[in-house]
Structures are given as structure tokens and as C-alpha cells.
Design a protein around this nucleic acid. Structure first.
Lengths: 198, 198
DNA sequence: GCGATTAGTTGCCATTTGGCAAGAATCTTC
DNA sequence: GAAGATTCTTGCCAAATGGCAACTAATCGC
């Protein structure tokens, strides 16, 4: 279990790696984050409300998902320790979210609200560059994912996820992983069988 | 044909609609944009180089595309008048682009370099909010596209594109539209035939 | 620890999409 | 305007994925 100060120090690490800035600045920023805990199944964000917490996760795993008109849920992302968790569109545009963010297991982290974050962005040019960098990184990841969805087979995407994000498989049921990969749980099951027989 | 001042005035419109700010501020910004013309087939950006122009397109259509390892090209986006054109990851992270941006026809617009844009972002808080808003909007669009790629059939995506972006069909060959939709030109042809017979 | 729920697998078959190659239509280019 | 290139369509068949239902395995709640 991490103490609050350990959590803040992890955040300082994370910030300075993403965008170089004086340690003092990063830790002043980290001071403004408050602890946030979630039980398994708890929601950080529910569809229809406005994402108002920029969460730095230190323990546990979460997933984002959207509901389709016919009542299926599609996993749009997984989040693990040392990652920022929030719904960009809702958070920055202050509009109701189309997505949900839910804890897959008990989670811990530290968070900051939109108002405080914005205040810091305006006061600290380097921190604002950090913020932009986070956005750009997210965009970039989504672009690669989109490209691989179009160009690669489901099997290749599965193997890729297994390699780059093995922890997910410990914590998320296969059906949510299947929807993340853009296939049904049935197909994922068959793909796994196929691979096992090699 | 648009004069430079007409182009700048369109940009002022675009900026103030995306994020409210004093007209004077928006037109000061627009003054820093210089004219840029491209012939059909010309590249605004080539894979391997750094996107250094933030282009506001006023005439013509362009497309972004990536090459797959096996030599196919996948259209990742279309760009038309009154849109900003640049490759986000390369532009903001100052790293070589994985994508190309090419004019589908003769194009005109006004552009600004990374250095000047950044200067303006730091000097003008409202304009920097505008910049963030553009990023967030792009992200948001990509997310919807990703979701529809996963949840909808190719036919539904085709019809959707036809409805929301009919101009593209006037200017881009079907094979580039097919790759944008995540299918082959063969399949798109069949889908069109299918729809025609209704 | 046990019944009830949820998750995962499998068989059967349908649908969607792709690969390839040939032909038709369209557009360049000189 | 004719030769050549490119784009689009189509037929044939294969591969990938989905839908449904039954069955098994794992997990949860008390």
C-alpha cells in the first residue's frame, strides 16, 4: 500500500519524464492532488455526467467503455498503475460523457479537479506543456490502434496486446478484452484455441 | 479564388467559433499566417519528416495516409476547406511523421509554423484554449470513428460517410475511401452495388 | 460450502470481407 | 486522339468473424 507522499512522488516522476521541468515545480503540482480510492466495480465516471477528475492511478486496473444502442458494452481502453485516467472530451469540453470509467479491482490514486488543473496550466508554462504532451500521446496511441484495427487480423492484435500489456489479462475478463480488440468473445476464444495448438 | 485577406477572415471566423475571444486577438493571430498553395499530388508532409506547418485550408481537398509494411497505403483522414491540416504527433512532439499528407487537387490555404504558433500560445491564453480545443475535437472524432469501426458494418460506415462528408466522394478515388473505411476497394464496390439495388 | 450467477468454450452454420484475376470504364499524357 | 495507366467492377472461391445455443468452469454471495 502506498502512502500519499509515495503516490505524489510517483506522480512527480511521471510528470518530469513526460516533460522536463524543475523538480520543485512538479512537486508543487503534485501537492494539489488528493487521494482517491475506488472499490471493485466503482465508477470514476458514468455516461451522461461530466468527467471532472484527472486521476493518476497508482494501484489497480480500470477500464473505459461505451454502450452501443443495442445494449452491448465496448471496452475503449484499459488503465493501469502510473497512468492518467479521465475522459478527454468530457473533461476538457465540459460536456456529458458518452463513456464510463470503472474499476476492475480495488484502485488507488491521486486526483485533481478540472478547475485546479486549469489554474495550474495557466500559471505554469512547463506544466501546460506536460498537459499537451499527455493529450498528444493519447492521440498518438489511439491512431496506432486505429491503424492496427484496419490493417491487422484480430489474432495479430491479440498477440500484440498480450505482449505489450500482459497485466490486463490478469485483471480483465476476456469478454471485455474481446470488445477492446473489436471482436466477440466467441471469436477471441477460438483465436486463443488456435494459438494454443501451436 | 480567395484573396489573402479573405482567407484570414475565414480563419478569424473559424477561431472565434471554436473558442470565443476578442476579434482583435483572433485577427492578430490570423495576421501571422502566410499563404500556402499546393498542386494536385503535392505533399504537405512526407513520412519521415517533421510536420512543421499548421495549415488552415481554404480551397481544395487533401488526404492523410500511412503505408503498411507490405506496401499498401491506408487513408487515415480527409481534409477539406475550413479545416486545420497537420499531423499532430509529429507537429507537437517534433518527431518524424509516420504519415503523409497530400493534396487530392489544387489546394490553397494559410499556414503558420510550429515556432510562431507556440509563441502565440504562450502569449495568448484564449488562443491556447483554442489550440487545446482543436486537439480535443480531433481526439473526439477519432474516438467516434474507432467506435463505429468496431460496432458498425462497413456498409453502415459507408452510408454515414456519404451523409456527413459527401464532398469527399467528388474528390477522392474510391480506393482511398475504401481504405479509410477499413475495407478493400473490392468490398466497397460490392457494397455500393448492394445499395444501388435498393 | 452450496446454489446462483457469470465467464469461457465449442459446434453448427450464416454473413461479411478478402484475394486474385479479368474485364470495362475512365483518366492521363504526349 | 491513341496508347497507356489507373480506377472500378465483377466472378469465383477462401478466410475471418459473428450469432446462437449448449455445455463446462470459475466465481460470488450468503
Amino acid at each position: 500500500m502506498n502512502s500519499l507522499s509515495q503516490e505524489r512522488s510517483k506522480l512527480v516522476d511521471f510528470i518530469t519524464k513526460a516533460y522536463p521541468m524543475p523538480l520543485k515545480m512538479a512537486s508543487d503540482v503534485a501537492e494539489r492532488f488528493y487521494p482517491l480510492r475506488l472499490g471493485k466495480g466503482d465508477f470514476l465516471l458514468k455516461e451522461g455526467s461530466i468527467s471532472n477528475e484527472y486521476l493518476f492511478l497508482t494501484e489497480g486496473y480500470m477500464r473505459s467503455f461505451a454502450m452501443t444502442p443495442d445494449g452491448n458494452d465496448i471496452t475503449t481502453g484499459f488503465h493501469g498503475p502510473q497512468q492518467l485516467v479521465f475522459e478527454i472530451t468530457s473533461f476538457f469540453h465540459r460536456i456529458p460523457s458518452h463513456e464510463n470509467i470503472q474499476a476492475l479491482m480495488p484502485c488507488a490514486g491521486i486526483a485533481i479537479t478540472y478547475a485546479t488543473l486549469n489554474e495550474l496550466f495557466h500559471a505554469l508554462p512547463e506544466f501546460r506543456e506536460f498537459g499537451r504532451s499527455i493529450l498528444v500521446r493519447g492521440f498518438s496511441n489511439l491512431k496506432s490502434r486505429m491503424l492496427s484495427t484496419i490493417t491487422e487480423t484480430a489474432e495479430a492484435r491479440y498477440l500484440q496486446l498480450l505482449q505489450t500489456n500482459p497485466d490486463i489479462f490478469q485483471h480483465a475478463p476476456l469478454r471485455t478484452i474481446a470488445s477492446y480488440l473489436g471482436i466477440t468473445d466467441t471469436s477471441l476464444s477460438r483465436i486463443r484455441k488456435e494459438i494454443a495448438g501451436k
